[in-house]
Design a protein around this nucleic acid. Structure first.
Lengths: 129, 129
DNA sequence: CCACGACATCGACCGATGTCGATATTGCTC
DNA sequence: GAGCAATATCGACATCGGTCGATGTCGTGG
């Protein structure tokens, strides 16, 4: 019954839990660890705003110098946050001359969104049991 | 065109950022703080698994004694994690006799899902600018 | 080649957080 | 009411994580 594979291959090769909805069935310890590492990256006001700024910036990309004016934080701190987002697979780095541009990775955004997508519908569990 | 108010009233009265997508435009400092507090709650493997277990449990609800066997953690620790999820507005508490049942709040699940929903689509920013 | 500007790395500090054992609270049962 | 079972609270401990200043690296331009 719970045989709908969606259109999602479990590309855990990237370290991304592609489609692992929280509902329907309990996630495994490994899935929880992977998803939590991604969520930890965005569970910070500064990083959340950085991600949002990159996403909404012209062309979907932004360099550090574009982002700095939005914060009261030091440049090393911003750089650190960007590194956290990059290490979590949420941001892609592209070097252009002296500047480093960051671009959000749609796969990661999709992975995060799909986590809670199925959970938003009310009374979903127990219907099949 | 960027005038679509969706069907979402900003019910920040709950402390929930109802529909605050990351993309399209930069989120405010307050929105980031609110969303981050919710994300912090789920940015932990144990709590993520707890949420998933509650969601997929029969009837969409589970008491602490149902959840305990799934973990190697002590009962106070599980209780603590459930409190964190409850304080973040992700779980609802219902007392029935000696047992306390936890139920996931669909509004909160929707709020988390909508954060990344719009960000999953590629090349969304810069199109309107 | 040298100076400068953009960004990353390092080391240190300190508050936040996950974990435990012990204990308190609440409700059921006999 | 006494005892027990389910859950929450408390205090302590160790580790994690965000922040900074100082410094290193790399590319550009004079």
């Amino acid at each position: 019954m719970s045989k709908s594979p969606d259109r999602c291959v479990p590309s855990t090769a990237d370290g991304l839990a592609c489609c692992v909805p929280l509902a329907r069935e309990p996630i495994t310890v490994e899935q929880a660890a992977g998803a939590a590492s991604m969520l930890k990256a965005v569970a910070d006001p500064a990083r959340l705003r950085l991600l949002s700024l990159v996403l909404s910036h012209e062309g979907g990309e932004a360099c550090v110098c574009d982002l700095l004016p939005y914060f009261d934080l030091s440049q090393p701190t911003i750089s650190h946050h960007l590194k956290v987002l990059h290490d979590a697979g949420l941001l892609h780095r592209k070097k252009r001359g002296t500047w480093v541009y960051y671009i959000a990775r749609p796969e990661a955004m999709h992975a995060l969104g799909s986590l809670f997508a199925a959970a938003a519908a009310p009374t979903l569990a127990g219907a099949g049991a």
